[in-house]
Amino acid sequence: MSGFVLRLVRESMPRTQTALAEALGVDVETLQGWESGRRPLANMRAGALLELRRRLPALGGNVALVPWLDAAMDADRIIAAGLDGEAGEPHPLAGWVHTRDTAHMLAWALNGTVPPALARRLTRPRRGPVAAGPQLAAADRTVFFDHLRGTTEAAARQGDGGVLLHRQALYLASYDRGPDAAAWTAHTLHRRRDVLAQRGWSPHWAEARSTATALARLGDPQPLLDFIDRALADDDTAEAANPNYWALWLGRWRCRSRTTRSCGTGTCPGGTR
């Protein structure tokens, strides 16, 4: 994902791979490795990556595209965990609340949905082996979604410690368009209806919100309507949590806490933690 975004930045200049490599002072093979994913940008030293992000706009790269490298690298790490089966600790979906931009990047890779903010910036398809988009191959998508299903079920057995991982893995599993995907997702979501029955604020507020929203995406809007009535309207704490949730999702606010238990679920009720 990050390599594809880097290619978009380069083409916005516009420069050839050779020209950009010379401007950056790297071998053209290195730049080709970045763009192809053979040399993941996330594996660069922090200082070198920071220098790259600063130089791209100075060299004429579209300033609206460069920030997407961060979301693309997040998506790369999540995808790598799913394909390799070795996520490490913590799992990328358990360590932080991923943003809308990261979700858009993952949707692009998993089902070909181009992020709306990038659609108009894509170059016209060209002849030859150059990919028109960063979508995973069908076999890789199968492996990734199998990993998400297993991760979702394992997280459910972890109790409160697995809330964030369960919620985010299940959310991404809903991107699966396989023949049995909708049935599995709906069944798994309905097993969590207990969190929807709670009124007002609770530590499971974010999970209830995601569950209700996902069910609405599958064609069942009633849980979302019930959630609004029971766990949002006329509850000061829940109403405060809602804009905070949106701020995290949109990447506009970062909680000072870095722990999954307090703010990792994206639900700090007053923006005070």
Rank of each mutant, 00 (worst) to 15 (best):
A139V: 12
G270I: 09
T265F: 05
L170M: 06
A182R: 10
D70M: 02
G37E: 11
R100S: 08
E153Y: 05
T113S: 11
A87E: 00
H91D: 04
H204E: 13
E153W: 09
D180N: 12
Q198H: 02
A216L: 01
A72V: 02
P40F: 03
L56D: 11
P57L: 07
L232A: 10
A231R: 06
T185W: 07
D235N: 13
R55Y: 00
H98D: 07
P14R: 09
A138W: 09
G95I: 05
W205H: 01
T267R: 10
D229H: 14
G251M: 12
L218I: 01
L136G: 06
N43L: 11
H91T: 02
S2T: 10
M105R: 04
L50Y: 01
E29A: 13
T259M: 12
L110D: 03
H91I: 03
H190A: 12
G219C: 06
M13E: 10
I79A: 02
A107T: 07
S262I: 13
H98A: 03
D70T: 09
A117Q: 15
W253V: 11
N244R: 14
E153V: 14
R256P: 05
Q168Y: 04
D235K: 03
E22H: 13
A19Q: 15
R15I: 06
Q168N: 08
E22I: 00
I228C: 14
V97S: 01
V130F: 10
S174C: 11
N111S: 10
W253N: 12
C268G: 11
R120N: 15
R10A: 07
M73D: 00
L118F: 01
A21C: 07
H166R: 15
T152P: 01
L136I: 08
H98V: 09
L248G: 10
L196Y: 02
R120V: 08
P67D: 02
T211M: 03
L65Q: 04
G88A: 06
G159I: 01
Y245F: 11
G33T: 03
L56S: 06
S174W: 05
Y245M: 09
L31D: 05
A231S: 11
V130E: 13
R177P: 00
R39S: 13
A64G: 06
T99E: 09
P90I: 03
D140H: 12
A103C: 08
R199I: 03
G88V: 12
D146F: 10
P243V: 09
L52M: 10
L93S: 01
R230W: 09
R192V: 05
L122V: 07
Q135I: 06
P115H: 07
A156H: 03
L41C: 08
A23G: 03
T265P: 06
A48I: 10
L248C: 13
A64D: 09
P125Q: 14
T267L: 11
A71M: 09
R193S: 12
T188V: 04
D236W: 02
S257M: 10
D76C: 01
T152H: 04
P134D: 00
G133L: 08
V130Q: 14
L110H: 04
W249A: 14
A212F: 06
N242D: 06
L218S: 01
G60M: 08
L148I: 07
A231P: 05
D176L: 07
T151L: 13
T265K: 11
L218G: 04
A238P: 00
M44F: 00
A117R: 10
A182G: 02
